[in-house]
Amino acid sequence: MENVGVDPAAIQELITSEDVGDRLRGINQLRSLDPQDAFRLIQPLSQDENSRVRYAAVSQIASLGHTNLNQAHDLLRDRLLHDSETDVRAAAADAMAALQVPFALEDLETAYHSTNDWLLQFSIIAALGALGNPAAVGLLTEALKSPQELVKLAAIGSLGELKQPESIEYLRPFVAYPDWQVRHRLAIALGQIGTPEVRPLLEQLATDSAAAVAEAARASLAHLAP
């Protein structure tokens, strides 16, 4: 049910205005409407000529798309693969993950391989953990070889979120990785996987020269089954 005091006609006027600021305000006010109505109204804005408007619309589809998951996926897929702006494409990847679209993995993998923009690759790899599809392990282990540190970091984090034991062998070499932030994320990820096979790796990390790494490893060890 629409909130008291909300004027759908006024919102409609804002989102169809020629003024970019009006359209952005209208997108924000769509949150006050029934999700089905808001989703219907926001769809054309995902194709807006202004990239800020497209970004705002795509970002909000993450919370509205559950009203029609198939249609939301089609909209997000189009922006992920075809938008001219990296931040809009990244927002589409995030929205797919937020909606837990089970058939999004192929699109995310296509987008990852079709770009050299490491920021977009980072967003895709980070989204795969939230997506929750165990089939993403293959792409994530590939991303561990990225020359970009942040992409590696995101891949380790997403592998932890997916909790698949087969990831352990791919993560093992990072116990001795030079960047302590990578080792720190590894300690958390191994704890998330939580199988007995991670114990010796965590025990090694628990003696790490970086205090934050050692502390994270000890915390992960404390939550392992005896």
Rank of each mutant, 00 (worst) to 15 (best):
N50P: 05
A90H: 02
L190Y: 02
L81F: 08
N68Q: 02
Q192T: 01
E142S: 10
Q100R: 15
I124K: 09
S158P: 04
L64F: 10
N28L: 08
S17Q: 12
L76C: 13
R52I: 07
P35F: 09
F39L: 11
K145E: 15
R52M: 13
L202W: 07
V182I: 15
L201Q: 00
A211R: 11
L224R: 01
Y170V: 01
L171N: 00
I15V: 15
D117G: 00
A135M: 11
R40S: 14
I27G: 08
F122K: 08
P173A: 06
A143Q: 12
D48W: 07
L76G: 11
D179F: 12
A217Y: 04
K163V: 07
R199V: 10
S220K: 03
Y112S: 04
L153V: 06
G5P: 03
T195H: 07
I15A: 09
A97H: 08
A91H: 11
K145R: 12
S114W: 04
P165N: 01
E13L: 03
S32V: 03
S158N: 02
F39T: 03
Q60T: 09
G194Y: 00
T207H: 13
V213S: 10
A90G: 08
S158F: 05
I124H: 10
Q148H: 15
L64T: 00
L80S: 01
F103W: 11
A90M: 04
A219M: 13
A187W: 01
I61A: 07
P196M: 06
D208A: 10
I193E: 02
A38R: 01
I61V: 15
A206C: 04
K163H: 09
V6F: 05
A176L: 08
L76H: 10
W180I: 02
A222I: 08
E142A: 09
Q192R: 14
S63G: 05
A176V: 06
H184N: 14
L162E: 06
L81V: 11
T67P: 00
D179C: 04
A111T: 11
T115P: 07
R54Q: 14
A206P: 05
E161P: 05
S114F: 08
R54V: 11
I168G: 07
L159R: 03
L190H: 06
A9K: 12
L128Q: 07
I168H: 04
A126Y: 03
A111K: 05
P178N: 05
G129E: 03
I156A: 00
L99T: 05
T86F: 11
E18G: 15
I61M: 14
A72D: 08
P196S: 04
Q47W: 08
L144A: 11
L205Q: 03
P173Q: 00
L144Y: 07
A211N: 12
A56S: 13
V137T: 12
L221S: 01
L33Q: 09
M96R: 13
L24C: 12
D208C: 06
Y170G: 02
E142Q: 15
Q36F: 14
L159Q: 01
A62Y: 03
A155W: 03
L69H: 03
T110K: 12
A57P: 13
E215N: 15
Q121D: 03
P8F: 08
L186C: 07
D74H: 13
V20M: 14
T67C: 02
L171F: 01
P8N: 10
P147V: 12
L99P: 02
S32D: 12
I15R: 06
T141K: 04
A93W: 07
A189P: 01
A93K: 01
D37G: 04
A225C: 10
T67V: 15
L99D: 10
L75Y: 12
